[in-house]
Amino acid sequence: MHPSPSVIIFTTCSGLGFGLLAWLGFGLPDVTGWVAFAFFAVAYLLAVGGLLASTFHLGHPERAMKAFSQWRSSWLSREGVAAVAALLVMGAYAGLLIFFDIRIMVLGWIGAVLSVLTVYATSMIYAQLKTVPRWNSILTPALLLAISISGGALLAGQITEAQVLLPIAAIIQLIWWTRGDLALMQSGTDMATATGLGKIGRVRAFEPPHTGTNYLLRELVYQVGRKHAIKLRVIAFVLGYALPVLLILLPFGHALAALAVLSHLAGIATSRWLFFAEAEHVVGLYYGKR
């Protein structure tokens, strides 16, 4: 799949932003006034910035409002509805907390649950696709939720929790990678079922439909960079999980914490690039590619 920068920025930043909002909704850390303002500002910048970035790859962003209508069938629509609901509820909660020093616990809890649901809906956009076996697994929502909640803990300064949650996310990441490498093979979809010609013999792509490339090959059969996959996985693992855990095990300091957050963000962005670049769409089989 084509690793579109807008979608990588969107899932990485929004995931982290909504993760932080979830912690703030539960009153962790228990802040008020200008300190609370700083925390909520970071969370909103990440969450809203990511959502805005996601509209950059649309053919017609001016019609984006229509995307809230099909929540009954579409995970993309559900994500939009959940995101707006989470941002509105958390906005009310944050406003009361910052400017009036009033904490309405229930409002925070609802906002936190909506924030987590938003990340879940994002993950289901990918996990629902049978056409991309690497994504089509319960492990995909598990991974994206684990990254969001552990990253949120890191950003919220919940060091003890982050020390437990980051390693859990790292383990899910490793399992996700390992399963993903076998997913296309185990999906049961191959050139034989794609063409229905497997009963006659071994099928080989002889000639593509056109001499040039096309939308399908550019969007769904992106193969550039897969050769560096192992190196990039190591980079993603070290920056995203190992280094932040190491940094927060050291005696606490704001500089170290900031470094841990930046390292985590860079690592997750790398992991998310691989999430797309390594994913094989079954339509590639029609072109004898994967």
Binding site: H57, L58, G59, Y215, E219, V282
Partner: peptide, 27 residues
């Protein structure tokens, strides 16, 4: 006139039957 050109339907189709038009930005 309702298509926002997000491309998710092309991702969901296993047959490559949908193509986003590069000039119009619709599926």
């Amino acid at each position: 006139s309702d298509c926002i050109g997000c491309g998710l339907c092309a991702w969901a189709c296993p047959y490559g039957a949908r193509e986003m038009d590069a000039a119009e930005g619709v599926m």
